[in-house]
Design a protein around this nucleic acid. Structure first.
Lengths: 192, 192
DNA sequence: GTCTATAGTATGATAGAC
DNA sequence: GTCTATCATACTATAGAC
């Protein structure tokens, strides 16, 4: 069993810290401490802070694609797959209550920083959007699939933001159910 | 006509910059430059960065209360008042596309910073929540008024986050309309 | 109330030994 | 590949003149 490379450890620690503390507020020292390496060594692997941000975004994009592919291959109906997406809110509620949505909070921070990597971070949203759109298309909603996809995304973002503010499990459960009911209604409209 | 005090100018500039650039990323130098005073003078008015954050939050809280009071006094129906709230998304869409929701982005930043003022910032959400709850109560929804209030808040947060990511006016308009339709449905349930 | 000057610290980043 | 210096910069904050 091969050990994980230092580079991988750095990306993993940075990913975690950026989510917990924010990108700007996380220093190289924070990451180096978490990985137990010196700051000097750090620079052997990443030249600038933007480089490591890019690596973190790339990793999250890849992980997102893998997750969506896995749901796709489980052979359920498109409706059940969309429900997998909605239920991330339930499964990850502990983290979401503490730090919000990993994608939503990163993009809004990068937007405020005027950071050049904002476009790449927004691409993660696009990956979700396109995947959801395809699911709705497979449900037969070819005309408004993209609009429906955005509605699901917006719903999940709203839940994440308020979950973080009010730390209320019942709220999360209730809103996830409401989004599920909405999905059922969309599906039954299409069947009819 | 009395000139605005330097203190007021500082709070106003800080408020704007915190919204545009984020709290942590805004330096005293940025604020001092915007007000055209020296950094030294700055410290005469505010001892620490946390002090000015507190002043900014207090000002926003007061402005929020004033806005909600004004809507309340316009003598419309509770449903029309809630619609005023929803339509902030349309009226402020230019700023929201650039910087997101002022309250949502501030609270999520403070949460990541582990900042002690997070509770106070979250209170702004509570002001909206309580006001919305009262409107639904006046509509006759005494049992689930708070749940409905949170649903409206969550809806607006979702719209703000995605509006900022995709900068899409049509998306905003469509989701605001959907939230308005939901409100109509709630109202008609109650009438029946 | 406003300014200049400056202290003290943390940060991003580099150079060079091992 | 990893380390120990070290630099330059930006930041929060203070002291003291006007």
């Amino acid at each position: 069993m091969t050990e994980k490379s230092t580079r991988d450890n750095i990306v993993e620690a940075a990913h975690q810290l950026f989510y917990e503390k924010g990108f700007d507020h996380t220093s190289f020292a924070d990451i180096a401490d978490a990985v137990n390496i010196s700051r000097g060594n750090f620079y052997y692997h990443f030249k600038t802070k933007d480089d490591i941000l890019k690596a973190v975004i790339d990793q999250r994009m890849a992980a997102t694609r893998d997750m969506l592919d896995a749901w796709e291959k489980e052979g359920n109906t498109p409706k059940e797959r969309i429900r997998c997406f909605i239920e991330i809110m339930i499964n990850n509620r502990a983290k979401i209550k503490k730090h919000g949505c990993p994608v939503g909070t990163l993009t809004s921070e990068l937007a405020k920083l005027g950071h050049p990597a904002l476009g790449e971070a927004n691409e993660i949203f696009t990956v979700f959007r396109d995947w959801l759109r395809r699911q709705f298309e497979q449900m037969g909603r070819t005309k408004d699939a993209d609009e429906l996809a955005l509605h699901v995304l917006a719903g999940s973002q709203g839940i994440a933001t308020l979950a973080s503010a009010f730390r209320d499990d019942k709220f999360i459960k209730r809103e996830v159910e409401a989004l599920g009911d909405w999905l059922d209604a969309v599906a039954s409209e299409t069947d009819a």
